[in-house]
């Protein structure tokens, strides 16, 4: 069976067949791999390839697949026909960088450092969030223009709330055709 997974924003293909309760035959990166999978617990397998063994920890709940092997942690999502569309949209969005600046943590808006229609540079500070008694500055991931500010000073925010909407584009390169004042 052919499967596609998304790890670290790139897609990988794996072919795999189950031979018996413990043995599998797989193809990955044009290599044929015979492996044995021994379940140790609900969250742990040992994988044998030849005599080499790998201890793998995983959690397959909350719709996320998290896998830890050799000290590296991976977040894996299966790519189905449906998710591929949204995935490429996301990837496209990320190529032009997130234009929705979201709250990275719950807290309170201390200061908003930009105003609507203002041009901002890459890494320019946009707003300050107070969380767990520390102040955290959120900077712009792109060069662009502040399209809209969705919050205000002293507002309580949750993770993922959109605080500022940006329009990507260098100075004078706005996608919006109407003339913009600087």
């Amino acid at each position: 069976m052919e499967l596609r997974f998304n790890i670290l924003n790139s897609e990988h293909m794996v072919e795999i067949e189950q031979i018996d309760s413990e043995r599998y035959s797989a193809k990955l990166n044009n290599k044929n791999i015979d492996l044995t999978c021994i379940p140790i617990s609900e969250n742990c397998f040992t994988i044998f390839i030849g005599n080499t063994l790998y201890k793998v920890f995983f959690s397959n709940s909350n719709k996320r697949l998290l896998i830890s092997v050799g000290g590296d942690l991976f977040e894996i999502e299966e790519v189905t026909g449906l998710t591929r569309t949204s995935q490429s949209v996301n990837l496209q969005k990320m190529a032009s960088s997130d234009s929705n600046i979201r709250a990275p943590m719950p807290g309170r808006i201390l200061k908003i450092l930009v105003s609507e229609s203002q041009q901002v540079n890459l890494n320019q500070p946009l707003f300050i969030v107070e969380s767990m008694k520390m102040e955290n500055e959120v900077v712009s991931p792109i060069a662009g223009r502040v399209k809209r500010i969705n919050s205000q000073v002293n507002a309580l925010i949750s993770v993922g709330d959109t605080i500022i909407e940006l329009e990507p584009g260098e100075d004078g390169n706005d996608k919006d055709n109407s003339s913009q004042k600087k």
Binding site: I16, A26, F45, L65, I76
Partner: peptide, 15 residues
């Protein structure tokens, strides 16, 4: 490690 992670993801899916 990435390869092993992919294999385990596949195993979990088809097991």
């Amino acid at each position: 490690n990435l390869e092993i992670a992919l294999l385990v993801a596949a195993i979990l899916r088809i097991r």
